[in-house]
Design a protein around this nucleic acid. Structure first.
Lengths: 210, 210, 210, 210
DNA sequence: TATGAATGAGACTTCATTCAT
DNA sequence: GATGAATGAAGTCTCATTCAT
């Protein structure tokens, strides 16, 4: 189970208010449960119960468990993408360091508020099955955009170098945000602060040396 | 399934040559299969088959599937610990940067050669189920040792800072090694090189500023 | 599910034009689908969809899936009965052979034009579940009528023989018509032709010998 | 579900005595249940229970419900084929009528003693799903053999006529044997006797006229 | 009355684990 | 000790039927 097949798409995107609520409840319950126990540790029955609905309704909206996960993943990735562009647009013209910091903070905030974050990134980073593809696709896009933006600050850098640097930055932030999940509050913030410092230094060096 | 219970220990550490071989074959087969498909994606039957033995024999050595995983994990962690101490001992007296580089290279090499690496770290980092506890315990030890060694190079650093820095270093290396698994060869090496550069810069700054 | 219970009757025989149309559409759609995929292979949802209505409406007319089938069956059987009497009335006074041939042809034509035929007879002949009872009842009536008519042509035959012969004729025609469904057009007609020849010879012998 | 796929073959043809018994018990229980309630009316759980074993064991031998049915069907068809050849060989040189009678009697006896008979023929004749293919294949073989043997008795008949006649004979016997299942003992025998008489007359006519 | 979303019993199947040989 | 057949709990999913709108 690695590719996203058509059968992994929702069955029916509900439009009426009550259905819509149900649909969202299922996704929300699933996000929480997946985050707690991982994909295989969660049963469709448990998702339905946590969403306060019946197994039958769940299957009316989604053709299967994987489809729920994929929907969650694509939604999150879409949001991450939008968030990235939004922050970048806002930070227009500001120095590189500030731009990076703004992006990292935005993502950290998303991580804090979005239950799906943990479930999806866990799967993505751990490469275990689901969303390998989806996650990779979205991450690739952010790497490319980062490389492009970096080009504006470091025109001397070869395209290849830019991509390597962008990949490193994105992977580092993602990995460290994820690692932060394993720590309680004061420590996780400290880890994030150190991460920012680390990439600031790295970036400065790259801009100076290539 | 998160804590390591007594029932997750091997049943009997076989001493006779033939049994020993069987035991090792099971662990080796399991490492490969877990790395490929994750804990839930592997059946005990498949492990036994890949080890060239029977499901009955497998259960003679291990009380269950989780015990196989836990054994693999503890073994790997033990080796990582030993490796760490070994490299540190060898690098005695050398500058901090060289020490760090030697440790990172040693771990990178371990990652390349040990099939269990991916399975165990995936579980550990993704926090999904198994070995959360075991992994955390071992990682903690390495962080503490790193902090202690760092103390030798930066006596001015407060104990708390030392721990934060050590944590950051260890998490970064672990996370980036793991991230490297998602890339093919030339890129994964580049990512590792950038990671080393990044932590070298970070470390230098810490040593200079605190 | 073998007996026809009161709950297998339609809920209400609609009289208003629009309802009537809906009711018929459901029966027609069901006939086609049952013929294609058998009773268990068809979902109520599919019937409603094929009838261009909703599942809710379907249950307004019929108390359940079986009731649709039973209605179809009784309707078909009724028509067969009427057809039989009609043909017999028309053939009044003609020789036995011509009478038989006329009946067989009429039934063959019904089979060709009525989608329910296949579904209902399949169930009846195969004795699997539905309409065993209904079918048997109607078939019995036709056997009795055949025996009675035969009495006019062969007064010497004992009542018991007459019944045996009538049963044989009816079963043969039904079974061979049904068998014909498994063949494509030219062959199925040939099979029917041979069947007619066979029963003609059989009948002639019975009339001659008893 | 119409074609016989590789996944419809048994999983493991057991060799040890105990397994063999279990395997047979499953098939026997399935034959009885399928005959009573049809393919869809039977659950794998019910088969396992009737066979005095567990659902797990059932799935160890067969990959699914259909595979049980297919195994039953192929086995029966194989037996029918063998029986046919056996009877034909024995009747070597005897008149056509005796040959036909011997074959019909043999099949009638098989029908009486083999619980799978009803289940398999019901499915085959009713064309509902399963074994359509398997049944057709075997029946075709018997038709061809019948046509060939008929050729020895009626060399003047064109090949096409021979096939039509053979098809008619085989279909009639099969259909009437099956129809007989719907009658209690004395009547079912009478029906069979009449069927024999009918095909004797038919055959005599064919041999005389072509 | 018409609609179709909601329900949940129950079907099929897998697989970790036990146990007789 | 080794084997692999046997077990059955538990998971995924379907579909007949109900019911709120």
């Amino acid at each position: 189970m690695t590719l996203v097949e058509p059968e992994d798409r929702p069955r029916r995107r509900p439009s009426q208010a009550r259905s819509r609520r149900r649909y969202e409840a299922i996704l929300e319950a699933a996000a929480t449960l997946f985050a707690e126990s991982g994909f295989d540790g969660v049963t469709t029955e448990a998702i339905a119960a946590a969403a306060g609905t019946s197994i039958g309704s769940l299957y009316q909206f989604f053709p299967g468990k994987k489809a729920i996960f994929v929907t969650l993943a694509e939604r999150l990735m879409e949001r991450e993408n939008a968030l990235f562009e939004e922050v970048v647009a806002e930070a227009q013209g500001r120095p590189w360091d500030e731009l990076v910091e703004a992006v990292v903070d935005a993502f950290a905030h998303l991580q804090d508020t979005e239950p799906a974050w943990r479930a999806v990134w866990s799967s993505h980073l751990a490469l275990v099955g689901e969303v390998a593809e989806t996650g990779e696709r979205y991450q690739r896009r952010i790497v490319e955009r980062t490389a492009a933006i970096l080009g504006g600050y470091a025109p001397a850098l070869s395209e290849e170098r830019r991509e390597t640097v962008a990949t490193t930055l994105v992977e580092t932030v993602a990995a460290m945000l994820f690692a932060g999940l394993r720590y309680e509050r004061p420590r996780s913030r400290a880890l994030l602060a150190e991460t920012k410092r680390m990439i600031r230094l790295y970036t400065a060096d790259v801009l100076a040396q290539g």
